[in-house]
């Protein structure tokens, strides 16, 4: 737990932790930002040591998550600004970046960001042909043609492909 006893608010505010990625790089993060991640908060409550090693999150992904946490921990920013930051944060990001980000936010339990990234991933998949999704995400179709035809027959309403995109 954070103790704010004899030091006063100024020192308490400046408290920071060091987070190390799986590539070995270290990031200095304010404690108020780190505790927005439920997992980091739990770790910090349990140990004295202010160094946290994340063995399955790489540099690039960790830097993004930390930028997000720091923005959301900034009391000087209005909720509106934070919301538009969130929008900007995922816009234009490739699926290859998002997929590591979504896993990292899941591991770190940053629920809001995890949801924002999942939503962005859904936006990429929305209104696309099944063939497009399989191709784009390397999903191996292991149905027999008969089994696939049977599913298409069962949910016939869902397979009208007229409004769907293939690019």
């Amino acid at each position: 737990m954070v103790t704010t006893d004899e030091k006063g608010p100024l020192t308490a505010k400046k408290k920071s932790v060091i987070i190390r990625s799986c590539d070995g790089d270290e990031f200095l993060v304010s404690e108020s930002a780190a505790v927005l991640s439920t997992s980091l908060k739990k770790i910090l409550e349990e140990k004295e040591d202010r160094l946290i090693h994340l063995s399955d999150i790489d540099n690039k992904t960790l830097a993004m998550v930390i930028a997000y946490l720091s923005t959301h921990a900034d009391d000087g920013l209005s909720d509106d600004l934070k919301r538009s930051f969130d929008q900007e944060f995922v816009s234009g990001k490739e699926f290859d970046v998002l997929k590591y980000l979504v896993l990292a936010t899941d591991t770190l339990q940053v629920t809001c960001l995890c949801y924002t990234v999942a939503k962005k991933m859904a936006d990429i998949m929305k209104n696309k042909l099944v063939e497009w999704v399989r191709r784009e995400f390397d999903i191996q179709n292991d149905y027999t043609p008969e089994a696939e035809a049977e599913i298409r027959r069962l949910d016939a309403w869902a397979w009208d492909d007229r409004q769907l995109e293939d690019d």
Partner: peptide, 9 residues
């Protein structure tokens, strides 16, 4: 789109 994922694999 949710229901259509059933046919991916």
């Amino acid at each position: 789109d949710v229901v259509r994922t059933s046919i991916l694999s």
